[in-house]
């Protein structure tokens, strides 16, 4: 339930979040200490920490840890940038022009819920086993959410604002640039955040395609050697990086659309 914020609520919220994470890790640590579970099934935090330090120093399969993180981030960011650069204008155009929307809607709704792993064979067949097919898979899973969200954001612009523009003598172009686009901005940001979340989940699928580095590949590879500690480390890194990506988007939105949610 949302209660209108009081002073200090934000700080209290952060403290509660930190406390709950600390309690969770603490319980996990105690479980490991008491040897309640085999480290093969659930390695304790200490062991994961040690492996992290180890592969930071020596690398995993001759590749340093930062490179695994960097390679994955690179693939994802290129895909996200392409998806936003193509998806936002396309979605806006669909929102503005019903004919375009009717023409593209069937494809968008077909591809959006499709499990992108199913496209791996086609991606390899068409684009080979290089970086392009990996970026392509992440791009596809991001694109359609951006398109649908951007199209919906245009329809969400209130009739009042459009009538205001018309009454003030705005031309069609002015209505689009000065009214519809800025009014859609907060919702576009929301859809990009959702899409980045969806795209990030496809990373593993993308790195199943003949990869030799990357966090997703590291997890898959470590699992075949029963290195549960490294699997867990990979999962933690994937989660934290995803968290960070979303946070960066929140910060950008705060600058680009400071009015979001305050109207």
């Amino acid at each position: 339930m949302i209660i209108p914020g009081q002073a200090g609520d934000r700080r209290r919220g952060i403290l509660v979040s930190l406390a709950s994470v600390t309690v969770f890790v603490g319980l996990w640590w105690v479980c490991g200490r008491l040897k309640l579970m085999s480290p093969l099934i659930l390695p304790p935090p200490q062991e994961i920490w040690d492996s992290a330090l180890e592969i930071l120093e020596l690398g995993y399969h001759q590749t340093p840890l930062w490179r695994h993180v960097g390679v994955s981030l690179g693939r994802a960011l290129v895909a996200f940038a392409l998806a936003v650069a193509i998806g936002v204008p396309l979605g806006l155009a669909m929102g503005l022009f019903p004919i375009l929307s009717s023409a593209l809607e069937p494809f968008v709704q077909f591809f959006r819920p499709l499990p992108k792993i199913a496209l791996i064979p086609l991606a390899i067949l068409w684009l080979g086993i290089g970086e392009v097919s990996k970026v392509f898979l992440i791009f596809l899973s991001t694109l359609f959410t951006v398109v649908v969200g951007s199209a919906a954001s245009v329809k969400g612009v209130g009739l009042g604002k459009l009538r205001l523009g018309a009454a003030l003598g705005a031309t069609r172009l002015q209505l689009i640039w000065k009214f519809i686009l800025p009014a859609s901005l907060p919702e576009i940001f929301t859809s990009v955040r959702l899409a980045v979340g969806v795209g990030w989940t496809t990373l593993i699928a993308a790195e199943m395609v003949a990869a030799e580095s990357g966090m997703g590949w590291m997890v898959m590879n470590a699992s075949s050697y029963m290195r549960t500690d490294i699997v867990m480390l990979g999962i933690i890194l994937l989660g934290l990086t995803g968290y960070l990506l979303d946070y960066i988007l929140v910060i950008i939105e705060r600058f680009a659309a400071p009015w979001a949610g305050k109207e």
Partner: peptide, 19 residues
């Protein structure tokens, strides 16, 4: 026939542009 700047409009909602 259409809206125009010769008729100013004030709505029930202020309809201000937040940006």
């Amino acid at each position: 026939t259409k809206p125009g700047p010769d008729r100013g409009v004030v709505f029930q909602e202020p309809n201000l542009l937040p940006w």
